[in-house]
Nucleic acid binder design. Structure first.
Lengths: 101, 101
DNA sequence: ATAAGTATTTTATGGTCGTAAAATAGTGGA
DNA sequence: TCCACTATTTTACGACCATAAAATACTTAT
């Protein structure tokens, strides 16, 4: 039960990290992120979720957007890359502390 | 901002993993867990929090309790040890997926 | 031209979990 | 004895965040 909780929650708590991770490779628009998350990370958030996450990340300067036809392409900023690194480092430390010495 | 969120949230999302990790070493009563979490993992949850977490873990059979004087000692069950291992493995996988290939 | 698929936006909602608050009681030293 | 500290329990609350819902519009194949 708590493991399902861990997966269903923690995975989604770090959804923005997954999205930053994808954006680190190339610019993407929100609509194509859902299948990518499934393919690359095995998670299936709702279609709207990437929109909301990207909106928040843009507000805080971790990604920036460019319009092309009817699509809105996002790319990661240097600030966003830093955040991604720090986030991963933080999670790595968390795992190490939990591991058996 | 999101990094603070990651720390303030994710850390607490996996608080029960920290507590299981401590119980893996020896039995503990709720009151002494708060300072241990500070000392071992650098986190400072409220005093009541271990009580609530342990209550939930006990309900689901991941820990079991024994009364001694006015203290209630908890120890991890085999089921709880399994959960801890699975939880850590899950988080480790999450980090690997986020790391740069 | 029209239906289906692509693409985005905004608002409201629901579940979870740590925490605050308040009450209770045993223990030990001054 | 009295006060401070240790120790637990229960209830209600607040914040966060993915998601559902609904509306809108562009594009493309039939």
């Amino acid at each position: 039960m708590p493991l399902r909780r861990l997966k269903n929650k923690t995975t989604k708590e770090v959804l923005w990290l997954y999205i930053l991770r994808l954006l680190r490779e190339r610019e993407l628009y929100a609509y194509e992120i859902k299948p990518l998350l499934k393919e690359r990370f095995g998670i299936s958030p709702a279609l709207v979720t990437p929109y909301v996450v990207l909106y928040r990340l843009e507000q805080e300067g971790y990604v920036e957007a460019r319009r092309a036809s009817n699509k809105k392409y996002y790319r990661i900023t240097p600030k966003g890359e830093r955040l991604l690194e720090e986030g991963v480092a933080y999670l790595r430390g968390l795992v190490q502390k939990l591991e058996y010495p």
